[in-house]
């Protein structure tokens, strides 16, 4: 068995092992039951864990489906660099999709507001990409602990041909027996990380030594303060208002998305142990930095029904 690599590490804590086993089971089940799966890859920490678990699930085979990145064009440049390097290192198949309306109609987070921008460049883009590929299953890294409406999401989450989610009428899901029966045009979103918490994700990244985008670690970076959020001021497309000044601050990101919509936090956590320590004593939840969650009450549920991840 010379072709089998040796990835030996100390054994995982039982609760991480159980979460890992569950995720691997879901990956294998979907890959076996669906004709044309795809894995949504956002380059963030949850995606990094998802990718690692996918590699584990099929080993010694390569991941038997492509990765799909919905690129709004406004991601942090460090995310794209990281993505491209990883794809090369693990010999993965990546599909990067950008909604052409973005360029054609010059849709930006500054001109169209976060809600419309997100709808066009993320939700609609995702639906277009899924239609293009005719995927019947899409893996996502969503976790039930992230947000109230996600707490009720199934592991196999059924979508109509126009990608709608009906939270009032979900298929019952008992034991770990998942119903993958669909008609042509319908699809399933599968969530292997459903039962993970933010703390589990970080502990697993540490235990498994999973590479993540460096923006998660604190460093002195140029930022401006806008609408109560700290915005990274590295991209030349960021136009400063007269009263805005770039400051150098020790910051890091708890979640990564589009740079104009992702707020940084002041932090001195420069390595994974310090991040875990910081999270254990954190007094705000991770999505507080996400502008799109704050538009209105129940805003995630509304976006999800429309097809947002």
């Amino acid at each position: 068995m010379s072709e089998i690599e040796n990835h030996q590490k100390p054994p995982l804590e039982p609760h991480l092992k159980e979460l890992e086993n569950e995720a691997i089971f879901i990956f294998r089940e979907v890959a076996a039951e669906f004709e044309n799966p795809v894995m949504l890859y956002s380059v963030g920490k949850d995606s990094s864990v998802l990718l690692h678990l996918a590699r584990k699930a099929f080993y010694p085979e390569k991941i038997p489906f492509p990765l799909l990145h919905i690129n709004t064009g406004w991601k942090f440049s460090q995310m794209i660099e990281f993505r491209d390097e990883l794809i090369k290192r693990y010999e993965l198949e990546l599909i990067s999709f950008t909604n052409p309306r973005g360029a054609n109609e010059n849709v930006t987070p500054f001109t169209h507001g976060s809600a419309l921008y997100t709808d066009i460049m993320k939700t609609q883009a995702l639906r277009m990409a899924l239609d293009d590929g005719q995927y019947d299953a899409a893996f996502g890294g969503a976790r039930r602990d992230e947000e109230a409406s996600r707490a009720k999401e199934r592991i196999y989450s059924f979508r109509t041909p126009d990608h709608r989610w009906d939270p009032r009428n979900q298929r019952p899901e008992l034991w770990s027996i998942y119903n993958g029966m669909i008609r042509k045009g319908e699809s399933v979103r599968a969530f292997p990380l459903s039962n993970w918490t933010e703390s589990d994700v970080w502990q697993y990244i540490k235990a498994e030594n999973i590479p993540i985008v460096p923006l998660y670690f604190a460093k002195k970076r140029p930022v401006i303060e806008r609408d109560g959020m700290l915005i990274l001021a590295e991209d030349e497309r960021l136009e400063l208002a007269p009263n805005e000044q770039i400051k150098q601050m020790d910051i890091r990101f708890r979640t990564l998305g589009c740079f104009p919509l992702s707020g940084a936090i002041k932090s001195s956590a420069r390595n994974i142990n310090e991040i875990i320590k910081e999270i254990e004593v954190a007094t705000v939840s991770e999505r507080v930095g996400r502008a799109i969650d704050r538009d209105q009450a129940g805003s995630m549920e509304m976006k999800k029904r429309e097809g947002y991840f």
Binding site: H15, A151, K152, Q170, S199
Partner: peptide
């Protein structure tokens, strides 16, 4: 109206 899953932990267990 539906099953909601919640997560918490103590120093001893999740």
């Amino acid at each position: 109206i539906d099953v909601a899953y919640r997560y918490f932990s103590t120093p001893k267990r999740t």
